[in-house]
């Protein structure tokens, strides 16, 4: 208790010791431009909506359009033909359409969400650019480094032939892009296939992705001495090594599935 109180006091002193540069920020043209732009937006919005004598008809049409938009199935969701999953502690998913064009991204653990937040929107980028942006940021921020040179990945979707081609391209391009910065870079295929909601939630609860969770659970099933918490702290490379030590060369699959199997 005494320690915590002292820490709080220290934090308070440190906070108060931080210089106050608000005035300098506020007088900067960049700050003023933001304020002006948002004010202009606020001013123009009510005028457009309420200033018109045709407001009632307009708002009704607007409501109808909204209703149609919300009731119609999302075209973007329908267009997702394949997903690529990456884990290097942040766990993320990238969705592609049937022509392997980039559709969207999602962080599937807390680190993954933070990682994507740092990048901002990627929507207008090509899939090649998205992969390069992700890798560059992972290297710049030390999430991929000489100490942590492992990237776990998998691709899921319905067309096996296309998935094989996508996987081949990723395995070719990714090491090419980061290999000169991380000489020991190693890319390994995990198994994300048929992940249930329960598995996803379980993995998220532990701050990891499903592929890593499956590696750990396979090791536990194989009688690994380490606790779950200890295994969770290991890198993907170390987990792979342990799996090999236990005679498991294949990719650990969903619970109840044979190792490496893609399930039904």
């Amino acid at each position: 208790m005494r320690k915590r109180l002292f820490e709080q006091q220290l934090r308070k002193h440190a906070d108060r010791a931080t210089p106050d540069v608000r005035e300098a920020i506020r007088s900067n043209p960049r700050y003023q431009a933001h304020i002006e732009a948002t004010r202009a937006q606020r001013r123009s919005l009510p005028r457009r909506l309420f200033g018109s004598p045709k407001f009632a008809v307009g708002s009704m049409l607007f409501a109808v359009v909204l209703l149609v938009v919300f009731l119609a199935p999302s075209p973007e969701e329908e267009r997702v033909a394949a997903s690529a999953y990456f884990e290097f502690n942040p766990a993320i998913r990238i969705d592609l359409d049937e022509d392997d064009r980039f559709l969207g991204q999602e962080g599937i653990n807390d680190d993954g969400e933070a990682f994507l937040d740092e990048l901002g929107p990627l929507e207008d980028e090509s899939i090649e650019a998205v992969i390069e942006i992700l890798l560059d940021h992972a290297v710049e921020t030390g999430r991929l480094s000489e100490k942590n040179p492992y990237l776990l990945y998998d691709v899921t979707g319905e067309d096996d032939e296309r998935l094989d081609e996508l996987s081949r391209q990723l395995e070719e391009r990714i090491p090419e892009h980061v290999g000169d910065r991380i000489p020991d870079f190693a890319m390994m295929r995990g198994n994300q296939h048929a992940a249930s909601d329960e598995e996803r939630e379980d993995a998220r609860h532990h701050g990891i992705g499903v592929m890593r969770l499956r590696m750990i659970e396979t090791l536990k099933d194989a009688g690994a001495e380490q606790s779950f918490e200890e295994l969770k702290e290991l890198s993907v490379g170390e987990l792979r090594k342990l799996l090999e030590d236990h005679g498991i060369d294949e990719r650990p699959g969903p619970p109840g599935d044979m190792p490496g199997g893609h399930g039904p």
Binding site: T18, P19, V21, A24, I25, N28, R30, Y31, H34, G107, E113, L116, D117, G120, P121
Partner: peptide
């Protein structure tokens, strides 16, 4: 850097996804 960080924050606020 403290000052520049907040100015960069203002410049890029539209790209920040609220999570």
């Amino acid at each position: 850097i403290l000052q520049e960080t907040y100015l960069k924050m203002v410049d890029n606020l539209s790209t920040y996804q609220e999570r």
